[in-house]
């Protein structure tokens, strides 16, 4: 195009597009700030000395003093609570995947009477406020000696995580062509061998992601944890119970201790976010 042509061309559409682009970029920037700034503020508090946390006005730049965190981790019961949280989440993860993956496999590979009923049962669990289960289970657990135990709480958390595990693994297995398994059968595999040698290696990253997801569900759960544990508090239950009595810097350090693993978890499973929630459409 000649120079004259450029000058003669009406400039309006270009300007509109450029200003539209500017609005778009600003919007994205604001949304990113909206998500990230609050996390930054919590970390800034956690990384400041106790005195600074209650000082006024607060600086948004942390002093990178670890006194708050040291105080938090040195606080009586915190390390136990942390360890309890990890144990409960791990058991939850194992139960949810151990029970959920076979069910997901069955749903993806077989047609059989009762399939819809099972799917309905699984989907129904999502329409109910599940943490409420903790109330009757508290009684049941006292009767069976499961009250205030890691296993008892993990079983409740597994009820939260199991439907997700079923639906996620269902979508994972559905994404693996049946022909691969059939090929394995014709090449000398039993059904189980085909699953171990072909399906599991292909589904492994996704199964790992859904396991992490189950872990996060348990790690973050507050209500059931607070209802079902007394001595063996998880971190969330511990923080909730001490909200009224604990100093601010303890709360914020505790908040940071909850958030940081969550950030890492989400980062680890980011590729599978859709496998986890996209299936919600089916």
């Amino acid at each position: 195009m000649t120079e004259a042509g450029t000058q003669d061309a009406p400039p309006a559409p270009d300007r509109v597009r450029r200003s539209g682009r500017w609005v778009f970029v600003t919007g994205v920037g604001l949304l990113v700030a909206w998500v990230l700034v609050p996390i930054w503020l919590l970390l800034a508090n956690a990384l400041s000395a106790p005195a600074e946390v209650t000082a006024f006005p607060r600086s948004i730049i942390p002093s990178f003093d670890t006194a708050s965190l040291e105080f938090f981790f040195g606080f009586r019961g915190v390390l136990d609570a942390l360890w309890n949280s990890i144990q409960v989440a791990s058991v939850t993860m194992i139960v949810a995947i151990g029970l959920g993956a076979p069910a997901g496999y069955a749903l993806s590979r077989f047609d059989f009477p009762g399939k819809e009923a099972f799917r309905f049962l699984v989907i129904m669990t999502r329409a109910f406020p599940l943490p409420l289960l903790a109330l009757p289970l508290a009684v049941m657990f006292i009767r069976t000696g499961l009250d205030d135990t890691i296993l008892g709480l993990a079983l409740v958390h597994a009820t939260l995580a199991l439907p997700f595990a079923v639906l996620i693994t269902f979508s994972l297995f559905s994404g693996i062509p049946v022909e691969l398994e059939e090929a394995a059968w014709t090449l000398g595999c039993t059904r189980l061998q085909a699953v171990i040698k072909v399906v599991l290696p292909l589904a492994a990253p996704g199964i790992a992601a859904s396991a992490v997801f189950a872990f996060v569900i348990s790690w973050n759960e507050v209500f059931a944890a607070a209802v079902l544990t007394i001595e063996n508090r998880t971190l969330t239950a511990f923080l909730l119970q001490s909200l009224d009595v604990s100093p601010l810097h303890l709360k914020f350090a505790g908040g940071a201790a909850l958030v940081i693993p969550a950030l890492l978890f989400i980062f680890a499973v980011r590729k599978y976010l859709f496998a986890m929630w996209g299936i919600a459409n089916r």
Partner: peptide
């Protein structure tokens, strides 16, 4: 990923 971060954060946190 950034938009999804709060997904992993507990309501207590």
């Amino acid at each position: 990923y950034i938009f999804a971060i709060p997904l992993g954060i507990s309501d207590l946190a």
